[in-house]
Amino acid sequence: MKTKRHSLEKNEQKMALWLLLPSFVILFTIAFYPLGSVFSKSFTNERFASSQKTEFVGMQNYQKLLSLKITKLEAVSQDSNGTIIYEDPIDILPREPFRYKEISQFNIFSNHYVFSATDPAFIVSVKDTLTFTLLSVALETILGMAVALIMIKNFPGRGGMRVAMLVPWAIPTAVSSRMWEWMFASTRVGVFNVMGQWFGITNGQFPWLADPSTQVWAMIAIDVWKTTPFMALLIMAGLQTIPKGIYEAATIDGCNGWKQFTKMTLPMVKDTLVVALIFRTLDALRVFDLFQIVFAQKRYSMASYSYYQLIDNKLMGYSSATSVVIFLIIFLFIILYTKISGGVTDE
């Protein structure tokens, strides 16, 4: 009896393995195989669409991608206004095995430093993507929450408003990016330059998309405009699960609007909010289309930099290393969020 049951169990187990096999094969071919291939390519100097022999180069790609250095600059002279002139970083930064190039200069305690990297474009793209992600997701969450709180209320024309609210999100990025590019035009063709001139901020000629100080802000503006509706939609779904009765009870008990929001609405919508945040953060970290369409090779997001290295420079190995670094950064965020959301569900 016992042995029979044992064999039955074994049969079932076998059966289960066979049933799992297809999904394992699919997972292997669409996830692990490409991922592993990118990983192994990142240690080579492979070129895309080339017959050049591929060689193993160890950590060289990563070394070039990630080397950073902070060097102190000595004062050389002083000009007539008393401004100290420092030595040119080009002369003192190391050139072997890869040349360090200046990213920025700064002062700490009257000492002058230069921050440099062997691949400044990538380091800047990481910084830009992180700034973009943090600011755009934060703004989208706050605005999305506000929009959702309004949209959940009963008012005439609510249905129409809800549809209108979704329009920016429904427009393909390729189209909306072009639209915004126009608004940011560097002459009085662009609405921002016209407005800037009215208020006396610009002379009607400001190159919003070419000036390094405004480039990332322009990207954030486009993304917030485009994705706030999505955030609002997700939060609204969360708000709808909260029973209306408890608000009536709270009002009777003398609990005011702000307190209702912080003590009732926020805790109850928190789970939804965390999910929405994960969605948006991961999406923003791998932003590609916006940067590629508006900036092309002016300034990169992490993903568009990887694309540039692969397609324009045909550096398959180097581009793979870039992808691995992006993967690790995103992975870090996932762990962070899993910790946070785990905390939520345990409560």
């Binding site: 035009a185 560097s186 063709v189 330059n193 000629q205 400001f206 190159p207 998309l209």
Partner: peptide
């Protein structure tokens, strides 16, 4: 040339 020329492509120049 306008200050904004630093953001001009072919079409921006042609439009002007």
């Amino acid at each position: 040339a306008p200050d904004g020329v630093t953001a001009f492509g072919e079409e921006d120049a042609r439009n002007m």
